[in-house]
Amino acid sequence: MKSNLLVFLTLFTTLTVCISSAQCNNPVIFPASNNAGTGGIVCLDGSIVSSVPYPKICFENIRGDMKMVYKDTDTLFTFTKEGRLGIGTLTPSRLLDVNGSANINGDTNINGNVTINNHFLKFAPANNMDAIIQRITPGNMIVNSGGGTSSLYLNYASVYNAGTGGVNIFDGGTTNFAKLWITKGIGNGIESVGGNLVISPSGGRVIISDLSNPNLKIPTANYKLIVQSGILTEKVKVAVQNSANWSDYVFAEDYNLMSLYDVEKYIKKNQHLPNIPSAKELVKEGLDLGEMQAKQMEKIEELTLYMIEMKKEIDSLKKENSELRKKNNKS
Rank of each mutant, 00 (worst) to 15 (best):
A244Q: 14
N34P: 02
K312S: 11
A252E: 08
Y160R: 07
W246D: 05
L324D: 13
S21I: 02
C18V: 03
S209M: 08
S212A: 15
N215W: 04
I314T: 04
P55T: 02
N34H: 03
A32I: 05
G88V: 05
V49F: 13
P55K: 01
K67E: 15
I199S: 12
L303W: 02
T14C: 01
T137I: 06
N321E: 00
L11G: 09
S192D: 09
S3I: 00
S192V: 13
C24D: 12
F12M: 05
M307H: 11
K268D: 09
K2I: 11
I308M: 12
T14W: 02
G147W: 08
A131K: 02
E313N: 02
N256M: 01
N245L: 01
Y70L: 11
L216Q: 04
I182L: 04
W246G: 01
I104K: 07
K179R: 08
P214C: 03
K268E: 15
D288R: 01
V240N: 02
K67C: 09
N111A: 10
N242C: 03
K326W: 06
V17K: 09
S212K: 15
N109V: 06
F120C: 05
G46V: 10
E313M: 10
K319D: 13
D130I: 13
G286F: 07
T304W: 00
N321Q: 00
N188E: 07
G112F: 10
I41R: 12
V7P: 01
T10S: 15
G173E: 07
S47W: 00
Q293T: 05
L96R: 08
T10K: 15
N168D: 04
V28Q: 07
A124G: 02
I142Q: 05
E281C: 13
L76R: 06
L5E: 05
L15E: 08
N222M: 07
L180D: 01
K224L: 10
G166C: 09
N245M: 00
L6F: 05
T80I: 08
L6E: 15
L257E: 13
F120M: 05
L303I: 06
M68I: 03
N213E: 08
K122Y: 07
G100W: 07
G189I: 08
G106P: 06
D315K: 06
L303G: 04
